[in-house]
């Protein structure tokens, strides 16, 4: 059973959004998007590139004196086992981004496929898919993540990403389905059918272009959600024990009572990085939304 609210219908309505290269240009001109992108690139890319230039010898535990505040050698201080927090960060950020990337790709692609199949072809398949979408949406997915992560012991960064991705498809599926339902009533779909296009071609060439901006925005959203879900699970001790992610950094700092020992640089670093990533990605998401749905732009 699906309740369609007025809001959903507004979302499903087509608006005159800029297309193609014009779309990218208006994206870059959008303030939210630009600010978000700059923060994101700064926070995300610096550790990614810094990782390559870091001397492997400094990676092992005990490479530095333990529990030191920020200094020239260890710009973000060192933790309880004598590792540089900065070095840890250059491993954690790429790993966390990897979780986000895999899970968001998986969720968005799966969701788009399910939504398209369900909305365009209808029938019994649609009924089945709609029910599973609703179930997945109404059930607290975090609970399941906790459950699965606890039962699959010894997760890696990749398996963690897959588990999170498994729960990321329902929302895009629901939205895509709603949009397809409204789009397929439009005349151009019938014209395309009369012009000899097959169902699959119509989905790809006639409907997909309308969904791309939305799917892009959703991807960004899922990306944030996945990074945060990873952090949440890791903080609970359900993360990839052998690898470093932002969540695991917080977990270890907690484990060694960084707060109690006043080693603020240890836990503040991953926390601030997470907040900046989440905030900047949300700004990017907002920018996407505003450009692809001009109705929202009035809100300023």
């Amino acid at each position: 059973m699906t309740v369609v609210t007025g809001q959903d219908q507004i979302a499903a309505e087509e608006t005159q959004a800029p297309k193609g290269r014009g779309f990218i240009r208006s994206l870059l001109r959008n303030r939210n998007f630009a600010i978000g992108l700059i923060i994101f690139l700064t926070v995300a890319l610096i550790p990614v590139f810094a990782r390559m230039s870091i001397d492997p010898a400094t990676r092992r535990t005990g490479a530095f004196p333990a529990r030191q505040p920020p200094s020239a050698e260890a710009p973000l201080g060192t933790e309880a086992l004598g590792q540089s927090v900065y070095v840890q960060l250059t491993e954690a950020v790429p790993n966390s981004l990897q979780v986000g990337l895999i899970a968001a790709t998986m969720g968005t692609v799966l969701g788009a496929i399910v939504g398209f199949v369900s909305g365009y072809f209808g029938g019994a398949v649609d009924t089945l898919l709609r029910i599973s979408i609703d179930v997945f949406l109404s059930v607290p997915s975090l609970l399941f993540l906790v459950l699965i992560a606890a039962l699959v012991r010894g997760v890696s960064v990749q398996s963690m990403a897959l588990i999170i991705g498994l729960f990321a498809w329902a929302w895009p599926a629901r939205q895509v389905r709603a949009q397809v339902l409204s789009l397929k009533e439009r005349g151009f779909v019938e014209i395309a059918r009369l012009s000899g296009m097959s169902g699959l071609e119509i989905v790809f060439f006639e409907l997909m272009p309308h969904m791309l901006p939305w799917l892009g925005a959703n991807f960004v959203n899922a990306f944030i959600a996945a990074i945060l879900a990873e952090a949440g699970l890791s903080i609970l001790g359900l993360g990839p024990q052998g690898e470093m992610t932002l969540g695991m950094m917080i977990y270890w700092s907690n484990n060694y009572s960084a707060m109690l020992l006043d080693l603020w640089w240890w836990w503040v670093t991953p926390v601030v990085t997470l907040i900046l990533l989440s905030f900047s990605l949300y700004l990017i998401h907002l920018g996407f939304d505003e450009v692809s749905n001009p109705r929202m732009r009035a809100e300023g």
């Binding site: 087509e14 005159q16 297309k19 439009r186 005349g187 151009f188 019938e190 014209i191 395309a192 009369l194 012009s195 000899g196 296009m197 006639e206 272009p209 309308h210």
Partner: peptide, 27 residues
Amino acid sequence: QAVFQDPFASFNPFYKVDHVLEVPINK
């Protein structure tokens, strides 16, 4: 073949009008 009521909805706003002519020619 057919011509429908709404001449705006018959076009996919994403494409130039050439699109509706190109598709049947190709197909």
